[in-house]
Design a protein around this nucleic acid. Structure first.
Lengths: 226, 226
DNA sequence: CGTTCTATTGAAGAGTATCAAGCCAAGTGG
DNA sequence: CCACTTGGCTTGATACTCTTCAATAGAACG
């Protein structure tokens, strides 16, 4: 019988320094299980009610979202290379997922032994991913509940830039304005106006096609982000 | 060496039916570790930056929240009897917690062995609590990002009533309008207006002190909640 | 019975949504 | 290589929901 989540490890782990021991971004570690799949832009990865599995982004980006009956959409998160998403408590997904652009994922199906036969690093990664999701969700609730449009955009751009970590260079925006709007609880028009405003104020700079951003004044953005 | 998170259990558990095996509400099972503490209304349980520990509500209610520098507050969740809160990835709490009313909690400090010497049921409860938090957070993001004031109030009341599970009877509101407002991303005035509106429409009924609700027409509320 | 705190109600204003063009980049076919 | 089309982004005008500011009402407590 194989111990799944580190013996002697997890709960202290849940506590102190767990993430340090098992960084989520480990491109080096080739998973023993899981199959690589390619999705083209806007392709469905899974839908609400599908039997759950989880996924790790290799390249591209994915969005997870929920819909109301009248079509209103809330994108709870964008998932970038290295991120794990789709972890669920139950057997079925409670939200849907799609590729934002052409995307490669590793799919881990929940078959018996799929994780137990591993050395546990994937298991740790999964728990770590879950916690990371929770932390992001908490920050995002603050954004959605209490921040203005401008503050939301500033927060979003800063958060994205921290995650891709290419300081100084241009930050790619793989997602459309509609995606950003549905993530930030705004309309496309409000997103556009806030972005334009920040651009006019000289805090950011955008190329003609508007699908990338250079953060000209990250300090000022941080100040705005509140 | 003691296995912390059920051997052979956790990851399939993360997958299928884990929650069924380890229901969070188990008032019967007396925890072997953890100390009971009493807090009076509005007392601080922990603050952002405090060394993390986690807590189980015995009676009363707690709120966890974050603040922006200018004082705007977002209450990410209310915690009712049976709920576990305060689980963190790092060593420090990333948000603050206070008692909503006079409240009794069991405090589990993260000392080495605090969980390992247990039979694992607490560990399972903790992971389960984390997942539950994540699910609630996802639903709450939909509420904050996309629902109207009236929809938010309807969702909130229904959610609360499902959690206390006293169908038909009066639902206690231990928290103030300000708390509700900061949870739902509204102002006290908007909360009050939406509540009054639902009352005028005959969907709910409130006592003179306005600190409880009877759901007169749950079906209609569900329809509004979207 | 007054004080205090919370909740409600009213009026005015701000911020974002909605509706409607217009613009521009990228792709398509001649 | 150049119209033409298409889809996403931006911009403008107006509407509406929620906030803000202000006052009143009501419950709880001494």
């Amino acid at each position: 019988m194989q111990t799944v989540l580190a013996n002697d490890g997890l709960l202290p782990a849940l506590g102190t320094g767990f993430l340090d021991q098992a960084p989520v971004l480990r491109p080096a570690a080739e998973p023993r299980l899981g199959t690589r799949r390619t999705y083209e832009a806007d392709a469905e990865v899974f839908a609400e009610g599908d039997r759950s599995a989880f996924y790790k982004v290799v390249s591209g980006a994915a969005r997870t979202y929920k819909l109301l009956s009248d079509g209103r959409r809330q994108i709870d998160a964008f998932h970038l290379p290295g991120d794990i998403f789709g972890v669920e408590a139950g057997e079925e997904h409670r939200f849907s997922a799609e590729a934002v652009t052409d995307t490669k994922l590793v799919v881990y199906r929940r078959e018996r032994g799929a994780l137990t036969s591993d050395d546990g690093s994937l298991a740790r990664e999964v728990v770590s991913a879950m916690m990371r999701s929770l932390e992001r969700a908490q920050d995002h609730m603050m954004l959605l509940g209490r921040k203005s449009a401008k503050e939301r955009i500033a927060s979003f751009l800063l958060g994205l830039s921290e995650r891709v970590a290419q300081q100084g260079t241009s930050l790619d925006l793989p997602m459309s304005r509609a995606d950003i709007a549905d993530h930030l609880g705004l309309t496309v028009e409000s997103v556009s106006r806030a972005v334009t405003q920040l651009e006019r104020d000289g805090l950011i700079e955008l190329p003609p096609n508007r699908r990338a951003v250079v953060l000209r004044n990250a300090a000022a953005l941080r100040h705005i982000a509140a």
